[in-house]
Design a protein around this nucleic acid. Structure first.
Lengths: 229, 229, 229, 229
DNA sequence: GATGAATGAGTCTTCATTCAT
DNA sequence: CATGAATGAAGACTCATTCAT
């Protein structure tokens, strides 16, 4: 699992086309990040996630980051630019594992059953969300209000993630592992359950005692039985 | 179904205790609403749901409602007061059907199986959400930033809704209808699937062609099979 | 003394000329005052004296008076009109005792010495201030900001009060009772001491224990000795 | 006299205790004042003294100072903060000469008679008031409405100024120079006369021709005779 | 690069005043 | 006469952004 996570986080190499192009403008992938820049980003993530983008003030971000007000604007032309440089990379990383070529070869490979596939995906994304909880919260809250995010997410999901998961679903349907329902419906159930767990786990009741492995196994079993042909 | 919805919306008579007390202060239940007041509320709902509470300006609300800015403040002391008088009633109505005494008597009555129970609840809440889509969107977006909402929701869910649904779950478990898993886990799955459908249906892809009855039936079947003992 | 006070308050009959004319517009001397009007005036006096004219709001006055906001404006065209109808009569009454014809005949009459004259005047005005403390406070506070008040006061003092007091001073100087200093200087000392006592007594330290008679006698003696030729 | 004034203005070194502590928060004693800040203060003093604090608008202050409205709030968090930074230092300076330790040693020193003492004090405070006329006018007008000012003044007068003047009075009484009246009464007479002169001289009739030395001498003589044992 | 003073448009809110009922 | 809903101008204050140092 550790392994997979690492992959999930670093194997962005495949983003070699349109989407990347769109993203690149928001990413200073090559620029070495300075200390002040890092502190600004950290402060911004905290404050955006605490009060929301619109209610956050750049002056509060500056003071929490311990820099002058003007410094923020040296690095990120506008407040919105700051938001973009926080959220955009997260959107990319969000879809990373699914987009991986390896995962494409799912047909030949690692997962015997749909349950295995779901388990792997959920573990991976739970770990990812654990590491990026605040940023994801910002994304979830702000997506409604920023068409750029909607466009990026739509491209990501409808052209990359969904097709591949659909392929996987169809693969397991062909194998007779799961019922022949429209893949969009299955997709929604699966995402919905996963997201429901991750969201409850990390954002709604983070202080509750959780046995992740057990919960994941129950969900796998639930889905396996629910989708049995 | 029409019947049930009507109940869901109007059978608030049972709110005869603590929660109501808390809510009452936000509700002008008896006050006859004037025309301008209605236009203000409508405009506010639209604009809050379009751009979020923090980014909405009272001057824009006033001009969309066709009233002077001062008029808003004659009726709702503050911008926040306006938000509260939109969201608070929705929070109450949100839990209405579950809190009904009738539903408490679920043991003796209407629902043969857990699937029937889920179907009824989902249909009812889908209808409710259809009628209150914008207000619910506001609630979802703003709940993180307004502790009052969190407090109300927490009281509503943890002391009213959850206990009753849990009872239902335990009832069907005792009947041997569903598997003996912790009711919190089942609860999460069920809510998550329902919410996932309602949210996708009304907020994320409202323009997609949906066959609600079919989708609901599939979900009922999925859950029934997935939870089979 | 009681007697004198009554005179001081009621003997306005002599105001038969220019000044009255100016004042009349602000006075509804003949109009019978209604109950609501009285409550408005009382509330306004309280609130103006508590927070000052500029910081007082007509809506607060209305609510303290127990009338509708609009009612104030039915009776007093503007907020300023309300202020005028409170302060203007007080300005008139302020000068009343001195302007009285009787007092003009001071030469023939009641006061043997300058000290007697001062004592009588001070007692009278102390009683007057006691009955009109709040209104006088308003006058003192607002006179700087309202040229109308300055004009009225100037007319009152420079054309009526001062000349008469000066006559009295000259009378006592001629009698050899007091020193031959410029009457303006004596006037200032006398007014200043009187005002200093009345102000301290009623506005600055109203809760202190005061022996008015004793204090007045000391002042009389102080002045008598200080002004001795 | 020049000399004394200088002392009066600069010998604040003795403020080494409680009162200073209270004041310090309002004083930016060390901060170098910028040009814009100075213009803001000047404009504020003018406008506050012309129309009163409540009726003055920050936008008018800004435009008279030739700065943007926001600039005012960069330097003084609120309109009230601006008022405080104008009035508080004046309150301190107001009591300065009396509080000086030197003056405490009045027993051994400079003043032969109570008249000499009064003359020196009056000259000094007249000069001070001449230099701070507008600020003092603001203080006088606003003291009723701002409990902070009342508290500061009360501490200043009742714990510092009055006790020392009382000591002086008792000293001259012991010397047989003045009559044995309660010192509070004498204090009131003396302050009242002084204040009456300063106020008339600078605020009520500033354009009148005044012979300060002559007026002061007359007052000294009046007091001396009036208080003679 | 970093600062922070300065800006002025924009925010929420209050207020005196009007007018239809 | 009395009401109170409605107004819109004005108020204090905040904010993202710029720019000289």
């Amino acid at each position: 699992m550790k392994d997979e996570q690492v992959k999930g986080e670093h194997m962005l190499d495949d983003y070699s086309d349109a989407l990347s192009a769109i993203f690149e403008q928001y990413l200073q992938t090559d620029t070495e990040i300075t200390d002040k820049q890092r502190r600004i980003l950290e402060a911004a993530v905290e404050i955006f996630s605490e009060k929301g983008y619109a209610a956050a003030s750049t002056s509060e971000i500056a003071s929490r980051a311990g820099v002058a007000e003007g410094t923020i604007f040296k690095h990120y032309k506008t407040k919105k630019g700051l938001l973009l440089s926080i959220v955009s990379p997260t959107i990319i990383k969000l879809g990373a594992p699914v987009v991986l070529r390896k995962l494409e070869k799912i047909l030949e490979a690692p997962y015997e059953t749909f349950g295995d596939f779901f388990r792997a995906l959920l573990r991976d994304r739970l770990e990812f969300a654990r590491k990026n909880t605040m940023t994801l919260k910002i994304l979830i809250q702000e997506v409604s209000y920023h068409p750029e995010f909607q466009a990026l997410l739509e491209e990501l999901f409808s052209e990359r993630i969904f097709p591949k998961i659909e392929k996987a679903i169809e693969h397991f349907q062909a194998k007779g592992d799961i019922k022949k329902l429209p893949s969009t419906t299955i997709l929604r159930w699966v995402m919905t359950l996963g997201l429901g767990y991750v969201g409850t786990r990390l954002m709604i009741l983070p202080d509750h005692e959780w046995d992740d492995e057990w919960e994941i196994e129950q969900m796998v079993e639930f889905i396996t039985k629910g989708l049995a042909p």
